[in-house]
Nucleic acid binder design. Structure first.
Length: 479
RNA sequence: CGGGGCGUGGCGCAGCCAGGCAGCGCGUGGCGUUUGGGACGCCGAGGUCGGAGGUUCAAAUCCUCUCGCCCCGACCA
């Protein structure tokens, strides 16, 4: 059987598309740029949802749902917002066979309709903070698409909050950015750089945008999640006001923050290898797959009984929530199953055959390194948990090492170009303007991904303007 | 929108240049042998060749028009 996955070294892009097809994560929809998320791909998204949703609720947010159709006039209320989004809007002009009086926008994001409602719900400082999250689909008519990383329609969550003071809003913005960064590192094992967007790169309508930027294996950066301080921009546009403790009318300070199915693409790109997907255990829908091995019906009964017992034990492992285990009892040969589950990135494979049942042991194989070992049944639960932790840490360490190896400094325009040509982040001192950013993008294709949060001050000279500055910027070509 | 590529059983493709029985691999159904790294054999099912028009005795193949998709750029989570 020929290898169905193009090696990464040969063609990174083809590899990515092959993995999505072979791991059955997604398929193309009938409309250009749309994607069907298949059950296994959706299971990964569901893991992302579960993990984030828990964190949102722990930080006081409630889920709600707002309509997908938004009056065009809403978008037009905030000037920067409409300018930013109008080129990529899908607009409904006919409903029930009749031309609509006002065109309806299929939401590209929900700040406008949510503010329309917030204006009704917020009257007093006692109504604040208002902390809402929505799980939804949005549509942006992108010119160039790629499964998960950029599709016309995508799934995401968008948090929308309103606060009585600008300090509270800023605190919320940073809190949620940290939630994203923690999730990326601890669950998805995707290292991200936290930082602030430049004026040129910020969200249309925001005062300030923060981002978590990942570096994908092809050397391009990916904005993997964003958190915006909206100031009073939308509150003013939608006349959202509250009476403060001094009985004065004020506009609330707002935030919005989002993370999308794009993140699934980041996971694929960050951890995959030539055999396919490698999923970090905390994110994996299936953490351990049991492949029973038999030669005849008697053995089949024996081995399947053992396999199911093992699955039950691990699924209810004492002292923890249990592992996510799947028994693959399909009528396929073991080798077929081994390959399939490797393509799909399941972190641990457990083989159990007649020999193992007789000896009271099993074979455990890890996806990340390919190592196989025979384990006593009695030690299985502990060993599986230990290996999963090790794999989780290992994947993060590998990804971090890759990012470090592909983050290069540059002191001037020549070394900037040279660093950029190698792919990855280029770390520079930066004191340029939006116009400078535009020039650099036109000349090199690179953009400022973010101004990373800094713990130490680093004096230096802007690589582009030559002016002294302490600001650091990460440049890269981006998705 | 510019550049490139491609539309032929479910999927991947050959056939087109040079018109003449619609093929191959994978998958798929049945039976048998198999099963610790993508099994093999035998039998079978499955295609208005993207669409429309034209040339011709004859079109997947030549001509015209058209629709769509993929990839690479500009724009973007």
């Amino acid at each position: 059987m020929a290898n169905r996955i193009t090696p990464r070294s040969q063609d990174q892009n083809q590899w990515y598309l092959d993995v999505i097809r072979e791991a059955q994560l997604a398929d193309y929809g009938p409309v250009r740029g749309t994607m069907v998320i298949r059950p296994y791909g959706f299971a990964i998204w569901e893991r992302i949802k579960e993990s984030l949703d828990e964190k949102f609720k722990a930080t006081g947010h409630s889920n709600a749902y707002f309509p997908m159709l938004i009056p065009m006039s809403f978008l037009e209320k905030e000037k920067e917002h409409v300018e930013g989004f109008s080129p990529e809007l899908a607009v409904v002009t006919i409903g029930g066979g009749k031309e609509l009086e006002e065109p309806l926008v299929v939401r590209p994001t929900s700040e406008t309709i949510i503010n329309h409602m917030f204006a009704k719900w917020i009257q007093s400082y006692r109504d604040l903070p208002l902390l809402i999250n929505q799980w939804a689909n949005v549509v942006r008519w992108e010119l160039r698409t790629k499964p998960f990383l950029r599709t016309l329609e995508f799934l995401w969550q968008e948090g929308h909050t309103a606060h009585a003071t600008p300090e509270e809003a800023e605190e919320e913005t940073l809190r949620m950015l940290d939630v994203y960064a923690t999730f990326a590192h601890e669950v998805a094992a995707v290292p991200v750089v936290q930082g602030v967007k430049t004026e040129r790169e910020k969200f249309a309508g925001a005062v300030r945008s923060y981002t978590i930027e990942a570096l994908l294996a092809d050397g391009k950066a990916l904005q993997s999640g964003t958190s915006h301080n909206l100031g009073q921009n939308f509150a003013k546009a939608f006349e959202t006001q509250f009476l403060n403790e001094d009985n004065e009318l004020e506009h609330p300070w707002q935030t919005s923050w989002g993370l999308s199915t794009r993140f699934v693409g980041a996971v694929i790109m960050t951890h995959g290898d030539d055999k396919g997907l490698r999923l970090p255990p905390r994110l994996a829908p299936i953490q351990l797959v049991v492949v029973p091995i038999w030669r005849n019906d008697d053995q089949r009964d024996l081995v399947l009984t053992a396999a199911n017992e093992i699955a039950e034990e691990l699924g209810a492992a004492a002292g923890g929530p249990g592992l996510r285990v799947h028994v693959d009892d399909r009528q396929q040969r073991p080798g077929f199953k081994f390959n399939e589950w490797e393509m799909r990135g399941v972190p641990l494979r457990l083989e159990v055959g007649p020999r193992d049942v007789a000896s009271g042991s099993v074979v455990l194989a890890r996806r990340d390194t390919g190592d196989k070992a025979t384990i006593e049944r009695a030690d299985l639960a502990a060993e599986a948990s230990r290996l999963l932790e090790e794999i989780q840490e290992g994947l993060l360490a590998q990804a971090l090492a890759f990012r470090e190896a592909n983050t290069r400094p540059a002191l001037d325009r020549d070394s900037f170009q040279a660093a950029l040509d190698q792919g990855g982040f280029v770390r520079v001192h930066w004191d340029g303007s939006s116009e400078d950013e535009a020039s650099i993008q036109a000349e090199t294709g690179a953009t400022v991904r973010c101004l990373p949060f800094q713990t130490d001050e680093e004096s230096g000279v802007c690589f582009y303007t030559g002016r002294a500055t302490q600001t650091i910027a990460l440049f890269a070509k981006a998705y």
